[in-house]
Nucleic acid binder design. Structure first.
Length: 213
DNA sequence: AAGTCGCG
DNA sequence: TCGC
């Protein structure tokens, strides 16, 4: 991993003008975030969804907020109901709303009030293929991503799929915000390596905050 | 389709 | 092994 990013430069040229990396930004609330994830998963359990092609995703997902991103044979969409339970998604805990809003404001996107918090759980070997977040209605709002637990290599591509994406190690407590001209950049997660950490044991969690509508 | 796989 |  080349030393591309200094701690004093949260907005390095290599990430893009609309992209901000706040290393360790969520460290002081990490335990509360993990407790919140546990409560969300009690109401809406983690599940591995299928893509429209019928393949199963390797990351398990749940979420909270007024709506959440889902995929099945029919396609990608936001749903106000958890298809697994038939009930609304758990309410977004105020701590999560506040964290996402604070990080967004610090990156230059004030007024961000997410209605979606997608929670991904990566076991070792789980990955996320290169994709765009493009199912939201207003791309003026940024995406806020919080990493917890095992580290992972974030793949940071361009607005088109071509080219090899940059690789950025995201660790426990890191917060990445992207918006503006970077809002539709392709991104993904390389297969998560085996490991153990104090906070989560053997898994990586990711909280992705968005404004879907 | 946020998937996997095969080829050069 | 990796990008296409």
């Amino acid at each position: 991993m080349p030393d591309l990013f200094s701690d004093l430069d949260n907005n390095p040229e290599s990430l893009g003008p609309g992209t901000w990396l706040f290393r360790g930004y969520a460290l002081d609330v990490a335990d509360e975030l993990l407790q919140a994830i546990g409560r969300v998963a009690e109401q809406s359990p983690f599940r591995r969804m299928k893509t429209p092609g019928g393949r199963q995703m390797s990351a398990a997902m749940t979420g909270c907020g007024a709506r959440n991103w889902v995929t099945d044979r029919q396609g990608y969409r936001y749903s106000e109901l958890d298809p697994e339970t038939g009930r609304p998604w758990p309410t977004m805990p105020p701590l999560l709303t506040q964290l996402a809003g604070d990080a967004a404001a610090r990156a230059g996107y004030p007024g961000f009030e997410p209605d979606v918090c997608l929670v991904n759980c990566y076991q070792p070997g789980a990955r996320m293929g290169l994709h765009q977040d493009r199912d939201e209605q207003d791309f003026r709002w940024p995406v806020v991503s919080v990493s917890l637990g095992l580290p992972a290599v974030f793949l940071w591509g361009e607005l088109r799929r071509r080219g090899s994406p940059a690789r950025l190690l995201l660790e426990h407590g890191d917060v990445l915000v992207w918006g503006g001209e970077d809002r539709l950049r392709y991104h993904g997660i390389a297969p998560v390596a085996h490991g153990r950490c104090e906070a989560t044991g053997h898994v990586r969690y990711n909280l992705t905050f968005r404004r879907a509508c």
